[in-house]
Design a protein around this nucleic acid. Structure first.
Lengths: 195, 195
DNA sequence: CCGCCAGGAAACCGATCGGTTTTATGGCCG
DNA sequence: CGGCCATAAAACCGATCGGTTTCCTGGCGG
């Protein structure tokens, strides 16, 4: 019956690190993390080199789930314009959650000013993956300047995330029209070059 | 000779708070702030209620200088489109500074997750002033939807600030074309309704 | 049944946190 | 010169920081 399928100590630590550092910032204490995970500090330091590495690992673990939650299925056969808009629709839905504080990969880089912090490296890689998706879709969609469009999309993505995270402009109806305008200007039409 | 015009303890504290919390984050210690300012903690706590109030005051003091540095002169007689672009040109110039970490009013709100923190309140007001400027210029420039355009401009402003702050996309040539595209789409033409 | 050992609890380390209080030193005015 | 007051320096407070170590208990294999 109570085969609870208890997550391992490692998994509980990763979960606690993701949850608490997101809610309270990266300066949350190791004691609080271990207490929330139900793991002793001794065990934590046997599983992870340091608090920084634990944070990096917790971001890393969620990285693929984060991008796949945002990205459309690779074979959904919709045109690039729709696939790009899909990302922002998903992101806007996430931002509606009451405890949303902004994209954790952006926030962690802002809080840890050090770009060489292991967690900052992970965060940067995640955003590079998203940028690569935008870049590929922009090219596929026949954008006049695919690089520029991809950079614009990331700019809007992080801007919307930051604004939503600080609870500024909760009105809605902003991001999609903005992205639409940028797609229009780049010449990525609704039906261009479908899959 | 050495009429050094030494700033007051209060001014030195405000300066140290602005500099160090921007460089190291809002978790910088009170001891470090006081040491940098050459002021005893006793004096600091006589001048300010708490560390949070000191931070809020340091943001407040720079607020008007911040917006006037970004905004064009009220009577420069240029059309709204030029006046809006002026803000982003100034912001991009600031972002080029080697120690730029992103707009401090955005960063402080992200680091202090509490929107009711006195410093968060100050930061929010500053951004509301900037938004009001965009809104007025959008209307003056004949934007089809001035509210939407103003919100888009703040979105891009904060996005560019955050991206620059984490040293992502240092390539340049991104923000101005993006703003131009949004102005074009909103119907704010170069010569429309000049001053 | 015994011995081993993983792991939780908690003490411990020096450092720092935000904030208060004591003490000593100076300058200024009478 | 004598007393006063502002302030700098620093001790002090309990709490917490990241990280290490000690101790003890419980489960498992021989």
């Amino acid at each position: 019956m109570t085969t609870e399928a208890m997550p391992s100590s490692r998994e509980r630590l990763l979960e606690a690190a993701a949850t608490l550092t997101y809610r309270d910032g990266v300066n949350i204490g190791v004691d609080a993390l271990c207490k929330a995970a139900g793991v002793s500090k001794r065990s934590m330091y046997k599983l992870f080199e340091s608090k920084g590495e634990l944070l990096a690992a917790s971001l890393e673990e969620r990285a693929s789930a984060y991008v796949t939650a945002l990205l459309p299925a690779a074979d959904d056969n919709r045109p690039p314009r729709e696939r790009i808009l899909h990302v922002f629709e998903k992101a806007e839905a996430q931002a509606g959650a009451p405890d949303f504080q902004g994209c954790r990969y952006l926030v962690v880089q802002i809080e840890l000013k050090d770009p060489e912090h292991p967690a900052s490296r992970v965060a940067r890689r995640v955003k590079e993956n998203l940028a690569a998706f935008f870049r590929a879709e922009a090219e596929q969609g026949g954008a006049s300047d695919p690089d520029l469009l991809a950079r614009q999309l990331i700019l809007v993505f992080d801007g919307a995330s930051a604004r939503a995270g600080i609870k500024a402009d909760t009105q809605g109806g902003l991001v999609i029209p903005t992205v639409t305008t940028l797609l229009d200007a780049a010449g990525v039409a609704p039906g261009s070059i479908p899959g």
